[in-house]
Simulated scan of single mutants.
Amino acid sequence: MNHHIQSRIDGFCQRFGLRLPILLAPMAGACPPSLSIAVANAGGLGACGALLLQPPAMHAWAQEVRSQSNGAFQMNLWVPDPAPLRDPAAEAEMADFLGQWGPRVAPGAGDAPLVDFAAQCDALLAAAPPIVSSVMGLYPPEFVARLKAAGIAWWANISTLAEARAAEAAGADAVVAQGMEAGGHRGCFVAGEAEAGMVGSLSLIPAVADALAIPVIATGGIADGRGVAAALMLGASAVQIGTGFLRSPEARLPPAWAAALALTPPEGTAVTRAFSGRAGRGIATQYLRAAAAADAPRPAPYPIQRGLTQAMREAAVNSGNLSAMQAWAGQSAMLARPEPAGELVARLWQDAQGWLG
């Protein structure tokens, strides 16, 4: 392997207590402790997407992973947006539309509140993970100061070069450069610019690596050894993988979703706001395509849309109905394999080393 690449990887792994530069992506709603335990024990980094978790659940997650692994994990929070504008007539129209795809939307469904961000920040500090990460913006300076005082590293998810520079200036210890290929929600700082600012990993990784002094972690569209090697050659110090782990048994994904990943080509995914009100990439199911039609109602802002679609999403999972399921997937979904997560980590790294020479 090239000396510069090797020293970059070694420095990163040494700093963050890893044996391998392969990290699990923090996927809210799809990151059970079992998955992180397997990845961490294989030498990588586990992850908790804590967006949906109340503080006691955050503590429980950290305690379970810590007790059954080497303790290498990150915990991730969304930085909240300003309160969205409400449009009752538009929300009612969306509720009627959603009733075609699932149960009738209950009155007040769009009022479902977010978990209190300040309480989650306190819970993050109390859980004391070695690493925390932010997405959808930067943590406030006072919270960054509390993290640094506690000796907790901060990684900032970014989707553009401008966001990366802002993260470094704000004190981030590393950036997670997320290409537009990524499944689920992308970490765009300005919600309304997500679709217009779609930068692919092949362009984003070297641009950020050249501009910043802090390490770059590459994510988005990486699901096999070739992708790992390519990201490292482009300047990344490590890679973060989401969709590539979703077919592992430890991910405990709904079977219809897991099976569909194997059949989803790169063009079989699409970016939509129809599940949460924020742009996210998922399998182009019947609901997703219908919601994109010219005569379909426009999605409500986040998190109102998430509340409106909750009954539909839950019913789809319970019945195994992929057509209305929130089946997030990146563009490399077909490369995901149904093998144990620990074995997957080892194979990814072995294959990547073969490509790197």
Rank of each mutant, 00 (worst) to 15 (best):
H3P: 01
I5N: 03
D10L: 14
F12N: 10
C31P: 02
A38W: 05
A40P: 01
L45Q: 08
G46L: 10
L51M: 12
L51T: 04
P56T: 08
M58R: 09
E64N: 13
E64Q: 15
G71C: 11
G71I: 08
D81C: 02
D81Q: 14
P88I: 06
A89P: 09
A92C: 08
L98R: 01
V105D: 04
P107D: 13
A109M: 06
G110M: 10
P113F: 01
D116F: 07
A119W: 13
L124C: 08
S133N: 09
P141W: 07
L147Q: 14
A150D: 14
I152R: 05
A156L: 04
R165V: 10
G184H: 01
G187W: 06
V190A: 15
G192I: 02
A196G: 07
L202I: 15
A207R: 13
A207S: 14
A211I: 01
A218K: 01
G221F: 03
A231G: 12
M233D: 01
G235K: 10
T243D: 03
R247P: 06
A251V: 00
A251H: 10
R252W: 09
A258M: 11
T264A: 01
P265W: 12
P265M: 11
P266I: 02
A270T: 10
R278D: 02
R278Y: 02
R278L: 08
Q286K: 13
Y287V: 01
L288N: 11
R289C: 07
A290Q: 10
A293G: 07
Q305V: 03
T309M: 04
A311C: 01
M312E: 06
G330L: 06
M334C: 12
E339K: 06
E343D: 15
V345C: 11
A346E: 12
A346N: 12
R347Q: 15
Q353S: 04
G354W: 10
